[in-house]
Design a protein around this nucleic acid. Structure first.
Lengths: 346, 346
DNA sequence: CTGAAAGCGCTAACAA
DNA sequence: TTGTTAGCGCTTTCAG
């Protein structure tokens, strides 16, 4: 069916290997024949067969991207499309293809990754999440397969190339902001503590409280998928406390939106009755009501850096494990307000 | 490096071709040898090389997914992850891989698709969008390459397999709902009229108005990217009209969220001052405030159907072009309310 | 039911 | 600078 390298070679009056060299942009080849071959390729509508190349080359020029999907709507978080955009931009530029593996369950995701690796379909893998004791990471490590994770590995941190924010500082800064506004009873709402990102952000929250001499209470921490049943109740309990919080640090913008909505139902207004801050600065956080004060983690850039790292690593297997911290900054918007009844001065 | 079919053959004391037959689950092969070969494969940790298979086979067992990305945040619409989930589920089940092509511009997307097709990396393609006069579609048609589009083709509709909702009916139904609540001045806000989906939904809106004998006014239609500058202004103009609308049909949930937010800034309340309805029923529409009355188009199912269609088509090239309409239903929530000052009875 | 052998389209020594 | 040749790992006739 298709035009092959041989056809082109014949037409241009050269050997197939010469054509191959032209494709690869090999240096030692005369301009004259290069031009001639290229002309023939154009005329005949030649396009290299990637599978044949990969086979001969032992390299697929493509990278795998693994993302959680699942029942719990994780994938609906605009974080993913945005990070994908970043990855995709670089991949495109460097002439890499993107293979997607998603899975509803951990098993499915592992299967997907195994398939990618075993079948030689990808040269490297980017993980879009990081959780404790992840079989996917163990597998990749075991296979000594190039990969980078977006987020922070829970173990063997020095062996694993990763691109992350300084979530502890982010949590600290944003909490300090709340404190500077006079809030003293500040609660934290986050997802599963199996996710490193939750843990880090919470640690920052804790640090800020301690530095300010404010109490770090168990009752002020709720971990919940939130979006699931039970999540609402957990939040309700927070406000049933004798001393309910006046400020909320929430680990994710999307959760914030849910919380704002819930509060509204209880006749609590943000920011009048309660200030909230969160993380990610997804596009929605700007158009929602109120616009959210949030830590902008530069999602797109996370994707860009991860792709660059991975490609570098794929090209040169001896690249050492790296750690790249993408700086954050804080978007001050209107979900926060000075606390009107502080019990002391700051 | 890896274990090859030859190694397995040697170990099992058979010919490579026999091993190949076992992999392909060929019928004419004795249970005995099959078992022996499988045992060897397990023991040696054999995994077939996908590139070699694809090359020999002329089929890649993978499908390409094309989605717009772009500056204008289109990709941040939770529609995409959700439809991907549907596609991915089926792909996984049928043992297909997913290759992603995105692009910020039309040119980039076309390049991505050309690469996929020319390089023989995919057996078929799913387009996640549909716009007028799309070069990608023309290319695919020209190449006679299997593809399905999610949405409605703008031309050659009988030649192109597509999975869609009946957006005209959807628009009509949801508008009728507003009318039944006593609204008479109903405006439409949608994205670019280059997108078929916008046009269809608007047509439904028009039909409902006409059936009810209500005016279909130019001033009551705004087309805007909305999320970009200028969008806000367009909406503002709507409310600067001598007779501003009391009901809004909005082509997309995400836009609705933006509109609600904007209205708030002008001290207009939804649904008290204004009722709005929209489309898609993305997860957010339930947790936003107010929860949106919206047409649930069953995004996940769109993905599932598209994947099934495409795989069927890939396996049997003679499959005729199909058209699959995924039924919608309406989620009644709290963004609508009876109009308190109708000028006439319904 | 199984084996031998010829490719699939491309690359990479090794020669020239 | 270019050609020859031997694979990359798998499938698939064609014999047997």
């Amino acid at each position: 069916m298709g035009v092959t390298i041989k056809d082109v070679a014949k037409a241009a009056g050269v050997a197939p290997s010469t054509v191959s060299r032209v494709i690869a942009d090999h240096p030692r080849i005369s301009e004259a024949t290069k031009k001639r071959v290229k002309k023939a390729m154009k005329e005949m509508g030649y396009h290299p067969n990637a599978n044949a190349r990969s086979l001969a080359n032992r390299s697929s020029q493509s990278i795998g991207v693994v993302m959680p999907s699942s029942a719990d709507k994780a994938l609906q978080n605009p974080f993913f499309p945005e990070v994908l955009r970043g990855i995709s931009g670089i991949a495109h530029k460097m002439d890499y293809s993107l293979l997607l593996a998603t899975g509803e369950t951990g098993t499915e995701m592992l299967e997907g990754v195994e398939r990618m690796v075993y079948s030689n379909r990808v040269d490297g893998i980017i993980l879009l999440y990081s959780q404790i004791d992840d079989p996917v990471i163990n597998f990749l490590l075991e296979q000594n397969f190039p990969f980078v994770i977006i987020g922070k590995p829970s173990e063997r941190i020095d062996e694993i190339t990763h691109v992350d924010n300084d979530n502890v500082s982010g949590g600290r800064e944003i909490t300090k902001h709340l404190i500077s506004l006079g809030h003293e009873r500040i609660a934290f709402i986050g997802g599963s503590t199996d996710l490193i990102v939750t843990v880090d952000r919470m640690r920052g929250y804790q640090m800020a409280l301690e530095e300010a001499g404010l109490p770090y209470l168990d009752e002020y921490r709720v971990h919940t998928e939130f979006l699931k049943s039970g999540g609402q109740q957990a939040v309700n309990e927070l406000f049933a406390l004798p001393e309910p919080p006046t400020g909320l640090v929430i680990a994710d913008d999307l959760m914030s939106i849910g919380v704002v909505n819930m509060l509204e139902e209880c006749n609590k207004r943000v920011p009048d009755d309660l200030s909230i801050v969160s993380f990610n600065n997804v596009y929605l956080s700007e158009i929602t009501r109120p616009p959210l004060t949030t830590v902008d983690i530069h999602i797109y850039e996370l994707g860009v850096q991860a792709a660059k790292c991975l490609i570098a690593k794929v090209k040169d297997k001896t690249e050492p494990a790296k750690r790249i911290i993408v700086p954050f900054d804080i978007k001050y918007r209107s979900s926060t307000k000075a606390n009107e009844a502080p019990t002391r001065n700051i």
